[in-house]
């Protein structure tokens, strides 16, 4: 099957619908990354490598296993690959596993499902780049913390955790972020994967806390397409996934405009706030292919490195 996968267009595995048909988190993560890479090779980003950061000329004492024999074959000169591990980046993937992340208009693709696979792809990508990756699963409290590591075995641990993630309690994003910001010592890359359904100002303040601690912050703001478009027509009884807000029976079309305005305001606030705080904010529609989100991640990494 792997050969079969290799021969097909791997970019299609960026499509969540397609990916959902693949079993196994690890396989899915790998397919996403390969799909991404495959797509990148076809893209204007040709030449962009994710496997190593750059070459330098060989100097005696360098390990022979790092010599890029391809370059030697082409240039008859010895160059050593410089790997991402040379940057010594610690990444913390903060994945929101609260109840609200359990929403998905197209099963089985919930925000949490999307988030876990995005997190898995990012983990795969970063581990390939020899970065250290850690995982923080949270809802109204930290449910699971895996400290950053870069070993292959670490990937398995993370994937296992991601695969078993289930939506939990009510979201308390800002509180978790503040708490976590105080815990981590070394600077790193904070990747937030969440719907951020909390007070936006509080969220921004907590994200700024990371910035205050000199962390780089990337926010993947996951929203379901239905949350973005509110396409309901019939009389609908809305029940809170988190079980906090009482059910609301309403004519959706009558509320649509106000709901969307409210959501837009929320998104705008977050976007503006993140921009002002030099936080990379990416709004992710869970119906979109993973490539877009991952590409944004790579661009951020590229910018950082430069």
């Amino acid at each position: 099957m792997a050969k079969t996968l290799e021969r097909t267009d791997k970019t299609r595995f960026l499509d969540p619908q397609v990916l959902a048909t693949i079993a196994g988190m690890e396989l899915r993560a790998r397919l996403v990354v390969e799909g991404l890479i495959s797509g990148l090779h076809k893209s204007p980003y040709q030449g962009f490598s994710v496997e190593f950061a750059e070459h330098r000329q060989y100097v005696p004492g360098d390990e022979l296993r790092h010599i890029d024999w391809r370059v030697f074959g082409k240039s008859d000169r010895f160059y050593v690959k410089l790997y991402e591990e040379d940057t010594n980046l610690k990444c913390y993937v903060l994945l929101d596993a609260s109840g609200s992340m359990g929403y998905g208009s197209t099963r089985p693709i919930t925000k949490l499902w999307y988030g876990t696979h995005l997190a898995a792809a990012l983990t795969q990508l970063m581990l390939q780049q020899l970065d250290s990756v850690g995982l923080l699963l949270f809802d109204n409290e930290i449910r699971r913390y895996i400290a950053p590591r870069s070993s292959p075995r670490h990937r398995t641990i993370i994937f296992r955790e991601l695969e078993s993630a289930k939506p939990g309690n009510r979201t308390q994003v800002s509180h978790i972020f503040h708490d976590f910001a105080e815990r981590i010592r070394r600077r790193g890359l904070i990747i937030v994967i969440s719907d951020l359904f909390d007070d936006p100002q509080a969220v921004l303040t907590s994200l700024q806390h990371f910035r205050h601690k000199k962390h780089e912050v990337i926010v993947f703001h996951l929203l379901d397409p239905y949350e973005l478009t509110f396409p309901f027509e019939r009389l609908t009884l809305f029940r809170d996934l988190e079980g906090v807000v009482p059910p609301i029976m309403t004519e959706p079309h009558a509320l649509k405009r106000r709901y969307l305005d409210s959501l837009d305001e929320f998104r705008t606030t977050l976007k503006r706030g993140c921009r002002e705080s030099a936080i990379d904010y990416f709004e992710v529609n869970t119906a979109e292919p993973f490539g877009r989100a991952l590409t944004r991640y790579l661009a951020t990494r590229r910018r950082r490195r430069s």
């Binding site: 109840g99 359904f197 309901f232 009389l235 809305f238 029940r239 988190e242």
Partner: peptide, 23 residues
């Protein structure tokens, strides 16, 4: 019509609540 309603488990309840309160 009122009997024929659908039930949706919804995450963005706060936004909905804000809208209904006004209208």
């Amino acid at each position: 019509h009122r009997r024929k309603f659908r039930t949706v488990l919804w995450a963005a309840m706060e936004f909905l609540l804000r809208s209904t309160k006004e209208t």
